[in-house]
Design a protein around this nucleic acid. Sequence first.
DNA 1: AACCTGTCTATTGTCAACATTTATCGCGTG
DNA 2: CACGCGATAAATGTTGACAATAGACAGGTT
Lengths: 257, 257
Amino acid sequence: MRRRSGLINCLQFSSNQRVILMDDPLTEPLDDLTVVRTVSLTNAIEKQIERLIVEGELAPGERLNEIQLASRFGTSRGPLREATRSLEAKGFVEVIRNRGVFVRQLTVEEALEVYDVRAALFGLAGRLLAQKMNDELLAKLNRQLDAMEAAAAQSDFETYYPLNLEFHRTIVESAGNKTLLAEYLRFVKKMHLFRAKSLVQGGGLAVSNREHSEMVDALASGDVERAHATCWRHVERAKARLLAAIEAESTQAASVS
Amino acid sequence: MRRRSGLINCLQFSSNQRVILMDDPLTEPLDDLTVVRTVSLTNAIEKQIERLIVEGELAPGERLNEIQLASRFGTSRGPLREATRSLEAKGFVEVIRNRGVFVRQLTVEEALEVYDVRAALFGLAGRLLAQKMNDELLAKLNRQLDAMEAAAAQSDFETYYPLNLEFHRTIVESAGNKTLLAEYLRFVKKMHLFRAKSLVQGGGLAVSNREHSEMVDALASGDVERAHATCWRHVERAKARLLAAIEAESTQAASVS
DNA sequence: AACCTGTCTATTGTCAACATTTATCGCGTG
DNA sequence: CACGCGATAAATGTTGACAATAGACAGGTT
């Protein structure tokens, strides 16, 4: 099949052959078709590789084999290379000339750097949101708070973690600065590149939720400076928890060996 | 010349044919050659396009013709497309499928968004730097302050502007957070995409320099919160000046028409 | 005159092939 | 046995060609 001649164009995967792009008017409604047309192969591939990285199938430090990935996605190397160059610019992979593309690895120092930047961005979100807080939004945040508390009470981490992400996203999204949101989300994703992902995600459910309550209170108070400081401090505390976890890990490893 | 067979590989330009990549051991010292070997064609092209955008040869909204640019750089379209995908991820161009690549245009709203994010990042820089200030660094900042003051006294904007950029860069760079520096620089570059570039660069030399003095004082005081607030406010004031300039421009245009 | 329609052209999307470099592995030598 | 060295294989860098799309334009119709 050298040419797909406008029939079917799909991205296929290892175990579950998932169809991403459809171009067949017989099997697909017309509305979806127009959507499909706007997505380039490069974009689709980029998203898929990003997924593989975030979900851990591609581990930090691992090399991305162009030929292998291209055949897996059912495309040539051209679009794949374009996708990896985009991912490089976003900081998810590292390209070394004549050597290949590698999933970016975050050192402890870089992870701490990212936390500081995230703190600054999240602080800005708090500042902006405090100025435009309304009842509807407050109700939404309180709902999310309750849901997290319920999950925390049962120590249900699988439920808690996505709720936690969504809560933070709501705050940044509601701040109303799209540039800020895009950067914030990029940095959150970037933390997945840190070797000890579990350490990042860990850190007391109940403790975290107490901070979340404080944050909502500060945001609702309308006190811009307080909201700013509270949101900033929340990320700083997460950074401190990570640091503590790393040190606990290393002393434990030292005592074992 | 189908193959360059390891002799000369150059990027050529319209009026002045500038040689960017050299691979000829006869004309180029070996040290430079090794450097050249590590730079991919894609990277070189990307940097050149970025230069064309920042210097204004490629105006915001303008389309980048792949064939034309590729022939101008003396390469094929492959590396060029990779370069544009990287620039897209960095937010300098916009890619529309089957239509082409366009130099990104910043609306007023987006420009103001960028200012807010920059304020947050620069505030973080101030916070970090206040904690690690030393005599040597303070002397450097004061030297830059003096140089700017001298240029401002003569209303020599051509000298003042790069000094101003360098001063801010010194602060962010000295903060010691590489992630922060990279993001900060990207946002500064992004402001070049705003239609009214002159408005961004404008805004009272003397006024700005008074703020710079305050900033250095705050950084030297060791008071983290004060340094944070002062640096943040400096960017916020620049934003306010831009906003005022835009409104002055629009009212002027309204009165003329 | 406005509008629709079919054709044509310029440009982008994608691919397969070739050139070049790096990594691997077996082999001989000190 | 360790170490360097050369042939081989595999992967990346780059290219030119072909397919498909969007925009321009001319011609006919209402």
